[in-house]
């Protein structure tokens, strides 16, 4: 079956020039997103998950940020070649985005109706009146009770979970083809997290929206993603379907991540497993596998060159010297 690819990222590089040196926040990231797919992007804080997605939207604060290379294809358009105006049509219209902290992501000085209506009017080219109707519909859809009244409220009159629902309603109000959810539940209570995730999942299925789910929570990924990309220090180290990644993690980093999730179905361990050490400082990183200082399988080779991509089947890719050795040996 040929996949219907709507978003393709090739060799994306986003660097930040700081006083301490060049921060290679994203250093050669490639992935594809097909219609209706939910793609998980997993990694620790600072691994470049958010920056990759802000780059897709051309929202990197510049200076200091700069896209140094790579291509982003949205449909058949190359995003970095678009004019500012064409790019604005994509933002919010074709690609919707929701953010980590719902408490600060809505403008506290404007009513919900103002914030939702302006987006809908902009992208749907409808009257304000129709836009408001649409906004109320969307708020209804995401489960805001009495949406008709509440749309005239200010953000501070909503709880955190409700605000995230409003953000979702706003992001989906223009029927985007892609929804980028940047850690949408990290700032919420655990009980609310599940509700929000279910909401994103059910709405994306219903509306046929492809989702990029950025998270550091493997539980989120396991629950709702079709495919998973694991990021480390600005690169994707492992790709695979949800089942593949969780049943048979290949990269030592992924293995470590999965081992460090507390499990109910295994006998209680004395201590929770954790990956030793800290994620590397991505300023002026030398040519090496950035994971080698924390890796239990580290070899000499890891310290001198970044491992190439090794493919397993159609869906799996791993960047680790362990597999490069093995495939060559076979």
């Amino acid at each position: 079956m040929k996949k219907d690819i709507i978003l393709k990222v090739e060799g994306l590089k986003t660097y930040f020039n700081t006083d301490e040196g060049v921060v290679k926040a994203v250093d050669g990231v490639s992935f594809e997103l097909s219609k209706g797919e939910t793609l998980g992007l997993v990694g620790e804080s600072g691994s470049g998950k958010s920056v990759s997605n802000l780059s897709i939207m051309s929202l990197i604060p510049s200076p200091p940020g700069k896209i140094m290379g790579g291509k982003v294809l949205f449909g058949d358009k190359s995003i970095f070649d678009l004019s500012e105006e064409e790019m604005r049509n994509i933002r919010g219209g074709k690609i919707g985005m929701i953010f980590q902290d719902p408490m600060t992501s809505l403008n506290p000085f404007l009513r919900i109706s103002t914030q939702m209506v302006e987006t809908i009017v902009l992208h749907k080219k409808v009257s304000k009146h129709e836009a408001k109707k649409r906004a109320i519909e969307m708020l209804d859809l995401v489960g805001i009770p009495k949406a008709y009244d509440r749309i005239n409220d200010y953000p501070h009159q909503f709880s955190g979970g409700m605000r995230q629902r409003v953000m979702i309603a706003m992001a989906l109000s223009c029927d985007p083809e892609v929804l980028i959810a940047d850690e949408p539940t990290s700032a919420l209570d655990v009980t609310i997290q599940a509700q929000i995730l279910e909401l994103i999942q059910s709405l994306s299925k219903k509306l046929g929206t492809a989702v990029i789910m950025i998270t550091h929570d493997l539980g989120v990924v396991a629950g709702m993603c079709d495919n998973v990309n694991v990021m480390y220090a600005g690169r994707i180290v492992e790709k695979g379907t949800n089942d593949e990644i969780f049943a048979d993690p290949k990269h030592p980093y992924t293995q470590g991540l999965i081992k460090s999730v507390p499990r109910l179905d295994k006998p209680k361990q004395k201590r929770l497993y954790s990956i030793e050490g800290q994620p590397p400082n991505v300023i002026d990183l030398p040519e090496c596998c950035p994971f080698f200082p924390r890796c239990e399988f580290a070899m000499d080779k890891c310290k001198t060159a970044y491992p190439p991509v090794t493919k397993f089947g159609d869906t799996r890719e791993v960047s680790c010297w362990l597999y490069e050795e093995k495939t060559r040996g076979e």
């Binding site: 929202l59 219209g93 985005m97 600060t104």
Partner: peptide, 15 residues
């Protein structure tokens, strides 16, 4: 300009 809600506004495609 650095605040989260302005990032949201940009992500909505506003001028």
């Amino acid at each position: 300009l650095r605040s989260d809600y302005i990032r949201t506004a940009r992500a909505k495609g506003l001028k």
